[in-house]
Write a protein that binds this DNA or RNA. Structure first.
Length: 587
RNA sequence: GCGCCUGUAGCUCAGCUGGAUAGAGUAACUGGCUUCGAACCAGUUGGUCGGGGGUUCGAAUCCCUCCAGGCGCACCA
């Protein structure tokens, strides 16, 4: 509807130009908005105010000329000029009535468009280090990314979802060492667990499996392991970093390459499998799990470094290789290769983004936790330094989620093993409530996740409010059968003029807005618009339900109303599907 | 100290990218089930849009500045 009205105004402007009332070179984007108040009509256009200056005319006078030159249309019932120069359009009732049939015949496709014209988009999200189970913070990124992907897909982009697996680097070595030490305990050793190791209970589980499968194969004595390793923190002048690095080196040297990889792999695979299953249960499925290690093995990292060297953005200092990121607004230059010859995480990331572009994605989305915001400028800088367009990458920063239980904030930290996992949250509040609460807020807003509210099966819970509207419509249709009636769409089609009361008009109005909401939330990466819209849609339905009976004696009126609520049910379903929440037929 | 995010009703948040009288939920109070599901609906109360400047026909929205909170500022990932 919006697009049709935009076209009408555009035609009017062209007519004015042919009539020499408006200069030919005048061009302004036409913005059609929903009128904020029903009494003002359905749509409003501010074009007269925007053009007033260049047209050297008063806004209201210009508005009158535009209105005079509007082409005929049976979509529009009434056009009025109001306020400082708004042109208000009232949509004909018949246009709203045919909307229902449009919705029902489109079905799941209602709300979709081909705005994106099948352009390839890659969206990378979650990408949590496989050093432990996902926690509630990752859950927000997962839900947010999955919904943005759904939305982009709905407006016609060819979306590919990707999880970047940080399976290389020091953190993974710390994980491997942690697993191995727990394993040694099972072999009968008495050890002192490093303060910087991963202390979660899941590490013990992995060690158990390792022991079950490999028995004593990787057994070394604790005395041998701890010999010559620098002291841990807390022991006169000990250093926790040096201590853990010492343990890692011991693991590597005592186990030898193959065995070390076995222990390492046991940890990685176990955790990755867990993460994959966790996300799948949450309705978040990836097209690709991209390994950081594979970038190194395929020499993509060296290739990227060569490219940077060729373009003169790399230099050597203190035995390390530095990327000149200050050329791109970063505060300081960054190391890409350490003095020990190992490349950094940042080097992998540069190579990874180059790889994305080389795979043919010219639009990439990265969804990161807000704590990584310092990375944006240097990653974009590296893209530019390699001769690619940094604008092709959008980085979305998702702020933290804070859990509240009994009004109390819950503190979490991964390393210490004290955190609420995503799985625990899902089991506690259910997938639907978790998905809904996660995407209810804009991503740049800190999220206060109220566990008690999400769990409550009461009217306070906004998820149930929307699902209840859907279930209620299903219930009406069941009741219809009970009373010996049936819903006849053909009769409904001929009786649409009966849908004339204010509640029916209001509901139709909200239903007609759905495609606009989908498009707007997709192109702005704002999933939160969907739950807000659905709440409003549900509210309009509930109001209608309370004001009028649907199962009435009058056959034409009855079918018209059933037609309307079936349309509303379809929109509820489509909207809930976008955010990954179920649409139950009964509750 | 520097950078990013946030500040709107008692609380949790929207506000369509500069538009008309700033809106929802929740809390508080009032009313509505012999009815297609009351997990619902209707109504009332509640505001210096953090403060101060500026830009213009017009600012919660854009610019500057100050205040408060969160998060970052590694040869970790």
């Amino acid at each position: 509807m919006k697009a049709q009205i935009k076209q009408l105004v555009s035609d009017a402007l062209n007519n004015l130009k042919s009539a020499n009332i408006l200069a030919d070179d005048v061009s302004v984007e036409i913005v059609i908005e929903r009128a904020r108040d029903k009494s003002l009509g359905d749509f409003a256009c501010n074009i007269a105010m925007r053009l007033a200056k260049v047209a050297k005319s008063k806004p209201r006078e210009l508005a009158e000329k535009i209105v005079e030159h509007l082409p005929e249309s049976n979509l529009i019932d009434r056009v009025e000029i109001a306020g400082p120069g708004f042109i208000n359009f009232s949509v004909a009732q018949t246009a709203y009535q045919s909307l229902i049939s449009d919705i029902l015949s489109a079905g799941e496709a209602y709300g979709k468009s081909n705005y994106g014209q099948k352009e390839k988009v890659q969206i990378e999200f979650v990408s949590a280090n496989p050093t432990g189970p996902l926690h509630v913070g990752h859950g927000r990124g997962a839900a947010y990314g999955a919904v943005v992907a759904n939305l982009l897909n709905a407006v016609g982009y060819d979306v590919s979802k990707e999880y970047y697996v940080n399976d290389a680097g020091r953190q993974m070595d710390i994980l491997a060492a942690s697993v191995w030490l727990r394993y040694l305990v099972l072999c009968g050793e008495t050890i002192v667990f490093p303060s910087n190791g991963y202390k979660g209970e899941y590490i013990v589980d992995i060690a158990n499996t390792l022991f079950t499968q490999h028995s004593n194969e990787f057994h070394k004595s604790w005395n041998e392991v701890i010999a010559d390793v620098p002291a841990d923190e807390g022991i006169d002048g000990g250093d926790k970093e040096a201590h853990i690095d010492g343990l890692i080196n011991k693991a590597k040297s005592l186990l030898g390459h193959a065995h070390y990889r076995s222990v390492f792999g046991a940890g990685l695979n176990s955790i990755l499998t867990d993460i994959r299953e966790d996300l799948a249960e949450f309705g978040v499925v990836f097209d690709e799990w991209f390994s950081e290690r594979s970038l190194m093995e395929s020499n993509d990292v060296t290739k990227a470094m060569t490219k940077l060297t060729d373009n003169n953005y790399l230099y050597e200092k203190d035995g390390a290789q530095w990327f000149r990121s200050t050329d791109f607004g970063d505060e300081k230059d960054r190391v890409v290769m350490r003095d020990n010859g190992q490349t950094t995480y940042f080097a992998s990331d540069i190579a990874y983004h180059l790889n994305k572009f080389e795979r043919g994605f010219n639009k990439c989305l990265d969804i990161w936790g807000a704590d990584h915001h310092g990375y944006v400028s240097r990653v974009k800088g590296s893209i530019k330094a390699m001769g690619k367009d940094p604008e092709a990458l959008d980085v979305l920063l998702v702020q933290f989620a804070v859990l509240y239980k009994n009004g109390q904030k819950m503190q979490m930290s991964t390393r210490s093993g004290e955190f609420v996992t995503l799985r625990e949250l899902r089991e506690d509040v259910g997938n639907d409530a978790a998905r809904f609460f996660y995407v209810m807020r804009k991503c740049e807003q800190h999220l206060d996740f109220d566990l008690d509210l999400a769990k409550s099966k009461s009217n306070e819970n906004p998820v149930y409010y929307i699902q209840y509207a859907h279930a209620r419509i299903c219930s009406v249709l069941r009741e219809l059968e009970e009373k010996g009636f049936s819903y006849d769409a053909a009769i409904a089609e001929k009786s649409l003029d009966k849908l004339s009361n204010e509640h029916e008009q209001a509901l139709l109005g909200v239903m007609s807005r759905f495609p606009e909401i989908v498009e707007s939330s997709a192109i702005n990466y704002e999933p939160h618009q969907v739950p807000h819209y659905l709440r409003e849609l549900a509210n309009n339905f509930h109001t209608y339900y309370n004001a009028h009976k649907f199962i009435v004696e009058d056959e034409s009126l009855r079918n018209a109303r059933l037609h309307l609520i079936c349309g509303a049910r379809q929109v509820l379903r489509n909207g809930l599907a976008l955010i990954g929440v179920s649409a139950p037929e009964a509750m």
